[in-house]
């Protein structure tokens, strides 16, 4: 009896193994059949670490701010739900005091104090959101961009608790009815997943700069932080800039030019 059982277990084990490897062998054959390969896009813009410099002095009117936000939100099918509770946003405006809590001074020139800053995901060098995600649904690409895999997100919102910049939005409800005009080239999101700015990774692949940069008339500068000759590095070496909450060590990649036009040039 005991031998019989042992034999049976052996047999069962072996056949399971064969079954498992058999399946993967079939998969291999199918793959081999296709003889396909994947390549990066030849036109893609590449960098070691993408970064952005925002010079709000170069953004004049309310319309110009709107244009930048709209450029992003319209191509990415970001819904306008119209209430603060369910709000989804990738790039938005916030005043100086609340953009830089802890380091904002009371006595600063009016053009800084009352001018809206543009806030978006900082694409941190050490992103806490990536550290906490239990499924690798949010992760950092080799070029420094922190992106979301909406297919994998389980909607636990740990990343929202972890993000020190309030850059992440959750789809508390189906966003589709709130996307006025959908861009047919880009997906929407579904209820129950987290989303945020992607530094327009889909545009970079086509050789285009981020939509907000394109719409900003030079107020937003985008480039490789690790290339000393890049435009962002040139601005950073000539103008005084701030980053949001640098003291917590996340290494944000979005810089804000502080100071007026007197420094320009």
């Amino acid at each position: 009896m005991s031998i019989n059982r042992r034999e049976f277990l052996k047999l069962a084990g072996t056949s399971t193994l064969i079954g498992l490897t058999g399946i993967s062998a079939v998969e291999e054959i199918l793959k081999g059949n296709a003889e396909a390969s994947v390549l990066p896009s030849p036109a893609a813009l590449t960098a070691k670490r993408w970064a952005m410099v925002i010079d709000i002095n170069k953004i004049g009117t309310k319309e110009e701010y709107e244009k930048i936000t709209q450029a992003c939100h319209s191509i990415h099918n970001v819904p306008d739900i119209g209430n603060k509770k369910d709000e989804v946003k990738w790039i938005w405006q916030e005043d100086y005091e609340h953009s830089f809590p802890g380091i904002s001074d009371e006595f600063v020139p009016d053009h800084i104090k009352h001018k809206p800053f543009l806030l978006l995901c900082n694409h941190c060098a050490k992103p806490p959101c990536v550290r906490v995600c239990p499924t690798k649904a949010t992760f950092k690409r080799p070029d420094g961009i922190v992106v979301m895999d909406y297919h994998r997100c389980i909607g636990c919102r740990f990343c929202m608790a972890a993000c020190p910049y309030g850059a992440r939005s959750f789809n508390w409800r189906d966003p589709r009815p709130f996307v006025k005009e959908t861009n047919p080239e880009f997906p929407t999101r579904t209820k129950g997943v987290v989303e945020k700015c992607t530094f327009c990774s889909e545009r970079l692949a086509k050789g285009l700069k981020p939509a907000c940069v394109e719409a900003s008339n030079g107020a937003l500068i985008f480039g490789d932080l690790e290339d000393p000759n890049s435009e962002v590095r040139k601005v950073l070496s000539t103008k005084y800039t701030l980053r949001r909450k640098p003291e917590i060590g996340t290494g944000p990649s979005v810089y804000y030019v502080i100071g007026g036009n007197e420094h320009a040039g």
Binding site: N33, A34, A36, V38, P40, S41, P42, A44, A205
Partner: peptide, 10 residues
């Protein structure tokens, strides 16, 4: 996840 956008078919 890998940033490869182009598929070269068999």
């Amino acid at each position: 996840r890998d940033g490869n956008f182009v598929y070269e078919s068999s």
